[in-house]
Nucleic acid binder design. Structure first.
Lengths: 335, 335
DNA sequence: TTCCCTATTTAGAACGATCTAAAAGCAGCC
DNA sequence: GGCTGCTTTTAGATCGTTCTAAATAGGGAA
């Protein structure tokens, strides 16, 4: 019923050549003569030969497999990221080994062990909150090329692909200030990640540049439900505009505001970050700063491909430039 | 710099036993004596030994790797599904090989070849629209256990995990009829999948049971933007209520309706399917039928685990029961 | 013809695990 | 000591590839 897989040897026998020759054909070596190649390829097609990549890796040490670790598979930001990475890697005939760390460093290191056992060629890692920078050097000692993405741990330890959140915050704050807002609140998150630090720094810089004042920084869990409940705390600082850590929190916040009879886009301006598709679906449509997660994922995949080709290439940081998308949620002027 | 991997042989040498014994320890065989096991485990920890699963598979034919193919990685429905499957498989110490078919049968078969080459133990497949049922028997001939999910091709060819969309449509239609609606439209999709057929059948059944009349079936592409533009066509049938293929289309439709100065939840009732998180974020909050994609993913993973354990187990269909979630978008009574 | 050179092809040893079948150890018992 | 029966350990073949180094072909030139 379940028959064994077709091997190089069987193809070789059927084509009347040696196993080594067939192997050369499989790897598209220029060494084989045209007529030999044709014959072997014909036989491979007839027998439905599929090369065993695991066995190949045993010899040549390349599994064409990339481990991707994200902290949250349900957050559309990370799935768009994943989608971009998968796309690029698939084009390079590589395959994605996916895992969700749930932002748990313990689970994360289990996952890395598992990936190591599977002989992945490289790693795209969005490090879980609280990841020890030493992890990066450890991974490097394993001989595993890594690209960090969306979040970063340590300084220039690895390549990195992300969005420029400092620029993003600036765009958002300037937009609000242009519309006459002076008291701006920030709905942040509790989890200590570089993504959070970067936004806070951008916020400070932007406030200093524009002369606007901070009207309170509230911390929420990184879920939609949590931000609904944060609305009261955010309003306590009497802001006329609220910047949110991302669109998911912004969407929740708007629901929370409405429950307190505050209408976003009229009574208070709300701005998100990321510009996920949902920004256009909520009401009022959410002003947001596009971070292009799909592009970031693609960029991470390309960085990793580059490093696989040259282990000693200089460490690179790639930041996708953000774009402001003005919609109705920041519609209220305060002049 | 990049040192070789630690092998069984090295552990064996260091522990003063044979490679075979170490292998037994790795596999937790009860054959090894307690003191030997302890010593070997100590050495493994000291040397940071990681078992090479690829090499193991070559001999014992189990890669602890599962291929998962989804048609759209950006659709939150599928990512929640994926998340459920990944979770369960990870617990069984298996790893997910992920690929996105973009609903393209050609790309899908490329992916399957790739997965085959990687020696996956099994497959969770949400078949791309237009997939030939013969694919399932072909995959079976490869000796690959498959579970179809979310969509199904062929009759009882493989195990299947999905949501009960017939029941879901019934819940939705009854709810609308209870609120006094008699003219109900359905915003459907163009792609011919079992998911579409099932919903249409449920719609017909529910109409027949309740005596409500169909107020037009419009077809849209399966994207948010497309459904925004479909609003005009949907209204042409003069419905008092609109049922949508899923929440993504419902969200788009509501935006489209508003652009035509029709307020969803007041001028016309809108109901979605799936109950994604976004149902609560749109305005007005969307009445929807929860399909529990995370549970479906988990169920698919369990079905596959079962089949891996027993290739001859009877073919099983598992359908997660839907639940109606009433919110404001169906708020308008028509009595 | 012989020799050399380049273009192809190949035998056989890896890679790191598991499996099979058989060998050692170690009691207890005659 | 020799035998039986049990537990524990092991040598060596094996999985399907790639690599190395060497063998073989096929022309020309001398």
């Amino acid at each position: 019923m379940k028959h064994r897989r077709v091997t190089l040897d069987q193809v070789a026998k059927a084509a009347g050549v040696s196993r080594a020759t067939v192997s050369l054909v499989v790897r598209k070596s220029p060494l084989v003569a045209g007529h030999t190649r044709d014959k072997v390829e014909q036989v491979m097609a007839d027998l439905d030969y599929v090369r065993d990549i695991g066995a190949a890796r045993l010899r040549n040490n390349s599994s064409r497999t990339i481990g991707v670790v994200v902290p949250n598979l349900v957050n559309p930001f990370f799935t768009e990221f994943l989608s971009g990475a998968e796309q690029v890697l698939g084009q390079g005939d590589r395959v994605v080994l996916l895992a969700n760390s749930h932002d748990d460093t313990h689970l994360q290191s289990q996952i890395l062990q598992r990936f190591r056992g599977h002989g992945v060629d490289g790693l795209i890692l969005c490090p879980a909150a609280g990841t020890d920078p030493a992890l990066m050097t450890r991974v490097r000692d394993w001989g595993l090329p890594v690209v960090q993405s969306m979040r970063e741990v340590g300084e220039d330890l690895t390549d990195y692909a992300g969005g420029d959140y400092i620029a993003g915050m600036r765009l958002a704050v300037r937009h609000l200030v242009d519309r006459g807002h002076r008291r701006i609140a920030f709905l942040s998150v509790r989890a200590r990640t570089s993504a959070r630090a970067e936004r806070l720094r951008g916020f400070d810089l932007a406030l200093a540049e524009t002369g606007a004042t901070e009207a309170g920084i509230t911390e929420s869990d990184l879920t939609w439900e949590a931000s609904v409940g944060a609305a009261g705390a955010v309003l306590a600082g009497r802001p006329t505009a609220i910047l949110c850590f991302n669109d998911v929190l912004a969407a929740g916040l708007m629901v929370g505001l409405r429950r307190l009879d505050v209408t976003p886009g009229r009574d208070v301006a709300v701005v998100g970050l990321d510009d996920l598709e949902m920004a256009q679906m909520v009401w009022p449509p959410l002003t947001s700063v596009a971070m292009h997660p799909v592009r970031i994922g693609a960029s991470a995949a390309r960085l990793l491909t580059r490093r696989l080709a040259d282990a000693d290439a200089p460490v690179l940081r790639e930041c996708v430039a953000p774009e402001l998308r003005v919609r109705d949620s920041s519609g209220c002027e305060k002049v």
